[in-house]
Nucleic acid binder design. Structure first.
Lengths: 124, 124
DNA sequence: CCGAGTTACTTTCTTCTGGGAAGTACATAC
DNA sequence: GTATGTACTTCCCAGAAGAAAGTAACTCGG
């Protein structure tokens, strides 16, 4: 891995920012964390991501593959299956995303409670 | 903090998923990490987020405040200034987001290199 | 007093992205 | 021959995001 050329996420034109946007995109985080359990097929990812459409799953997977974060392997069996897996590049990102997801699940109660006691925030 | 009622990020209807979507929204992550350096004003956040429009910054800040992740304090000076600061709830999330941002900046070179050697991915 | 400047937004208009449903290709199973 | 399963693609439209201009309250300079 390259030690030099550290990116700057604040700069919209920097590749580092594009990489950040890629992993924080609408469905990327869910897919990447799913793949921490090992390589998975299209239909499994679709089910586990919870709410993603075919179109967006396809686009998300294409973007992640183009960015070098996942690999796509076609198994020419009958019904042909396709497996998606994380690359080494993705490992560091998935660890952070896993923490973020754990945090969200742990603080679900706090969040729900806050929203309940601050209904005045919603304008009539 | 509540120990019980752990959320499930896979379920689109679960508040935990909404919380996860909130912190991974287009501009939320950048704003939250900015605020790790201490409370900041509107104009500072706008400049540091790099590329956000007034409209989206306003909406992002409103959503984060409604979700209990930041506080908004008006200082009635002349020109009045407004300060935004992280809540305790947000701390865990910002730590994870900081790691994600560091990862993106460290691997900027790898990402740029991959995109360069895989220009065939881009359809004509 | 008049106009320009500052801050923190809001509003309007246009463009782009995402969701939903349906379609496709190939193969096996009934 | 009809149905099922897998892994997508295509189309249309609603909603989200971007750009730019407008607003309110106050202050300062001339």
């Amino acid at each position: 891995m390259q030690e030099s050329a550290r990116g700057n996420v604040r700069d919209p034109a920097c590749p580092g920012r594009q990489l950040f946007d890629l992993v924080t995109a609408r469905w990327s985080a869910l897919v990447l964390v799913d793949l921490m359990d090992g390589p998975q097929r299209w239909s499994e990812l679709r089910r586990r991501a919870g709410g993603v459409s075919d179109k967006m799953l396809a686009q998300t997977l294409r973007d992640l593959e183009a960015g070098g974060l996942i690999t796509r392997t076609v198994h020419t069996s009958r019904p042909p299956t396709v497996q998606y897996a994380l690359t080494d590049l993705a490992r560091g990102a998935t660890a952070a995303l896993q923490h973020l997801q754990d945090w969200a699940e742990e603080h679900t109660g706090d969040y729900a409670h806050h929203r309940h006691t601050h209904t005045a925030d919603l304008k009539p």
